[in-house]
Amino acid sequence: MTVVLTVGTVLLTTAATADASSDRPVAIWEMDERSGARTMTDTSGRGLHGRIGSEVRTGTRTSGATGYRFDRLEPDSPPARPGHLVTVRDSDALDPGTRDFAVTVRLRTTHKFGNIIQKGQATVSGGNFKLQIPSGIVECLFRGSSRSLAVSSPRRLNDGRWHTVRCTRTGSGVTLFVDGAKVAHTAGWTGRIANSWPLSIGGKTDCDQIDVGCDYYAGDLDHVELEAR
């Protein structure tokens, strides 16, 4: 589902420096587990390990990187496929709260649909955040107690190449970086974001493909990292 961008998005092309969050990791998932693995290991030392669904293909090597492959599923076609997801149990550490917060993913896809990573969904209490890729454009959304802010990449990233996407939420706004360059910024303050939902990679956890689409991601991921200040 495509988010509506807040007025004030400004496209920039400077290097990703000052707007990046601090270097304190919340979780680091390298996604280099062997084929058939069912635990996504957090190498940050916090122990925020994830559960890999049975349909996620681990140990997939593509263009020099080893990661997870999420096969394409037809949008809004039941039944729901929870085996397509990687999930991490709810933890306060995974909630931005009022902290500066950053989400980084390294992705490769030729498809044009799906939610890459999220914690919470559009109407849940406590707000939510997510990265998605409608029409091949990566969009980042933070919805907090004050407002929702979103940014999107100025070009499509579903070109079959590896791209590193980083989205930061700070007191001054939400900023998007692609391959080290700042490409979008929306000014403002979202307010507090904290919910009781698990973090999911590859789509939604609460969906039925009838009334609520699962927005399943299709493509490869080989690194996901969360940071907070």
Rank of each mutant, 00 (worst) to 15 (best):
M1I: 10
V3K: 06
L5I: 08
T6H: 10
T6D: 06
V7G: 08
A15Q: 11
T17C: 04
D19H: 08
A20E: 05
R24P: 00
P25E: 04
P25Q: 04
A27T: 03
I28Q: 05
E30F: 07
E30K: 15
M31D: 09
E33M: 05
R34Q: 09
R34Y: 02
S35A: 15
G36D: 05
G36C: 08
M40Y: 13
D42Q: 01
G45T: 01
R46F: 09
H49K: 14
I52P: 01
S54D: 10
V56D: 00
V56Y: 00
R57P: 11
T62H: 02
A65Q: 14
A65D: 03
T66F: 10
R69W: 08
F70M: 02
F70T: 03
F70P: 01
F70D: 06
E74A: 15
P75Q: 13
S77I: 09
R81L: 00
P82Q: 14
V88S: 13
D90C: 10
S91Y: 14
S91C: 05
D92I: 00
D95M: 11
D95P: 01
P96C: 08
D100G: 13
D100F: 03
F101W: 08
F101V: 11
V105D: 02
L107T: 09
R108S: 10
T110L: 14
H111Q: 15
N115R: 07
I116V: 15
I117S: 00
I117H: 01
A122F: 08
T123W: 15
T123A: 09
G127T: 06
K130P: 05
Q132W: 00
G136N: 10
G136W: 14
I137D: 13
C140L: 07
C140Y: 04
L141S: 11
L141E: 09
R143Q: 07
G144L: 08
S146F: 03
R147M: 10
S153Q: 12
L157G: 03
L157H: 07
R161H: 07
H163D: 06
T164Y: 13
V165A: 10
R166F: 03
R166L: 03
C167A: 11
T168W: 00
R169V: 04
G171R: 11
T175A: 14
K182G: 06
V183P: 00
A184T: 14
H185E: 03
H185I: 07
A187Q: 03
G191E: 13
R192A: 12
R192N: 08
S196T: 12
W197A: 15
W197V: 14
P198L: 15
P198M: 06
P198V: 13
S200Q: 08
I201Q: 11
G202V: 11
K204N: 12
D206W: 15
D206L: 13
C207G: 12
D208S: 12
Q209H: 06
D211M: 15
V212K: 06
C214P: 09
Y217D: 06
Y217N: 01
A218F: 04
G219C: 02
L221H: 05
D222N: 12
A228W: 01
R229S: 09
